[in-house]
Amino acid sequence: MNLEKFHTYCLSLPGTTEGFPFDENTLVFYVKGKVFALTDVTEFESVNLKCDPDEAVELRERYEAVLPGYHMNKKHWNTVLFDGSVPDKLLLEWTKNSYDLVVKGLPKKVREELGF
């Protein structure tokens, strides 16, 4: 996975915006103001993604590159290392799942604006 591909994919999801709320290195992707992905743009070695709590534990057990979310709620967030062991297709699927989880928590009117 490279930063350009990941960036383009995230911004292709409806209602997605981006920003650097913490520092000049940490790129955050939002859907309607709610975070669904974070990554360091200078090193681009990992990404934090929201995850269903049960699935989060399962993914950590199954993949060495999946860790409890760094600086995040460990129950709801995973950090995925870009070590080559997780295929890009799967990483993008997990990114979409993170996005969908956040969308699911938005008010009905906002979800409808996004086409959900």
Rank of each mutant, 00 (worst) to 15 (best):
L3T: 00
L3G: 09
L3P: 02
L3K: 09
L3R: 14
E4P: 04
E4S: 15
E4H: 14
K5N: 14
K5P: 03
K5W: 05
F6M: 14
F6C: 13
F6D: 11
F6K: 12
H7P: 00
H7D: 13
H7M: 05
T8H: 08
T8E: 14
T8Q: 15
T8W: 08
T8C: 06
T8Y: 09
T8K: 12
Y9V: 00
C10A: 12
C10M: 00
C10S: 04
C10Q: 07
L11N: 09
L11K: 13
L11Y: 03
S12T: 04
S12F: 10
L13R: 13
L13W: 08
L13D: 11
P14Y: 04
P14W: 02
P14R: 02
P14N: 10
G15T: 12
G15N: 05
T16I: 03
T16Y: 03
T16Q: 01
T16F: 01
T16C: 04
T16M: 07
T17K: 06
T17C: 03
E18I: 07
E18W: 05
E18N: 00
E18C: 01
E18K: 10
E18L: 12
E18S: 10
E18P: 03
G19L: 10
G19E: 08
G19V: 08
G19N: 12
F20N: 10
P21W: 03
P21R: 02
P21V: 01
P21Q: 08
F22S: 07
F22A: 07
F22Q: 05
D23T: 09
D23S: 12
E24V: 08
E24H: 12
E24K: 14
E24G: 01
E24S: 14
E24R: 13
N25L: 10
N25E: 14
N25G: 11
T26P: 02
T26H: 11
T26F: 02
L27T: 11
L27R: 04
L27A: 06
L27G: 14
L27K: 13
V28K: 06
V28A: 15
V28H: 08
V28Q: 12
V28M: 07
V28G: 12
F29R: 01
F29K: 05
F29C: 01
F29D: 05
F29T: 08
Y30K: 15
Y30T: 13
Y30M: 04
Y30L: 06
V31D: 06
V31M: 09
V31Q: 05
K32I: 02
K32H: 02
K32P: 00
K32Y: 02
K32T: 09
K32D: 08
K32M: 12
G33S: 06
G33R: 01
K34Y: 08
V35M: 15
V35N: 13
V35L: 15
F36Q: 05
F36W: 00
F36N: 02
F36T: 06
F36R: 07
A37G: 14
A37S: 15
A37P: 09
L38E: 00
L38V: 13
T39D: 10
T39A: 15
D40C: 11
D40W: 03
D40N: 14
D40P: 01
D40L: 05
D40Y: 00
V41C: 01
V41E: 05
V41S: 03
T42Q: 15
T42S: 14
T42K: 15
T42E: 14
T42W: 10
T42D: 10
T42I: 13
